Amino acid sequence: MIVTTGVRADHLNTARRLADNPEAWPVAPRFDPVRRWYHRLLGESGVEAWLLTWLPGQETDLHDHGGSAGAFVVVSGTLTERTVTGADGSACLTGRVLTAGAARQFGEHHLHQIANEGPEPAVSVHVYGPELTTMTRYRLQAGRLLVAAVDRAGAQW
């Protein structure tokens, strides 16, 4: 299953190509019981790719990608993606379950939260362009999006 939002297909193609060739990954996926494990697979001018692992219960905060568009593919396991729906003052999170092989493509203004709510570990490949420089984390309070923190590449990841 591929879910797209009408943005550049090259991020999705890159994510799919990397996800389909785990033997070419420079490292094998690892699982950390304390936090999500990640490894940069690709870093070229204008695009980067990351391998992420998710143990049951691990999740991201609600976040954006600092103006970068992207795509991700679930390599194994199951992930739940939640996105913001509704207008300011009545915003809420709507979820979709993505199983192995599912892909999601998004534009530069996308906000989401990803979680492994299943019983099995999960692996995913994420591609962003341009490269991530910041990510803003948000929280929903009374239907309004509030900035919780701004993370910077090289400092927080």
Rank of each mutant, 00 (worst) to 15 (best):
E81V: 06
G154H: 02
A155Q: 08
L41Y: 10
V3Y: 09
A103L: 02
V123A: 00
E131W: 03
P22N: 11
E120H: 10
E108I: 03
H39Y: 15
A115V: 15
G66S: 07
A122G: 04
V150G: 14
S68L: 09
A103R: 04
D151T: 10
L132N: 03
V123R: 01
E131R: 12
P33M: 09
N116T: 04
L132E: 13
A71W: 02
P119A: 03
H39C: 01
V73R: 02
H112A: 06
G129M: 03
S90L: 12
L98M: 06
V75H: 01
L41F: 09
G6F: 00
P26W: 05
P29W: 13
H11W: 04
R152M: 12
T99A: 05
A87L: 13
G67E: 05
F72E: 05
G143D: 04
L146T: 10
D20M: 09
N116A: 01
R36N: 01
N13K: 09
G95N: 02
L42K: 00
G118Y: 03
P119W: 00
E117W: 04
L98R: 01
A28D: 05
Q105V: 00
D88Q: 15
V147T: 12
P22I: 03
Y38K: 08
A71K: 00
Y128L: 08
W50Y: 03
A115K: 14
A19E: 13
G66H: 13
T5M: 09
Y128P: 08
R40W: 04
R139C: 11
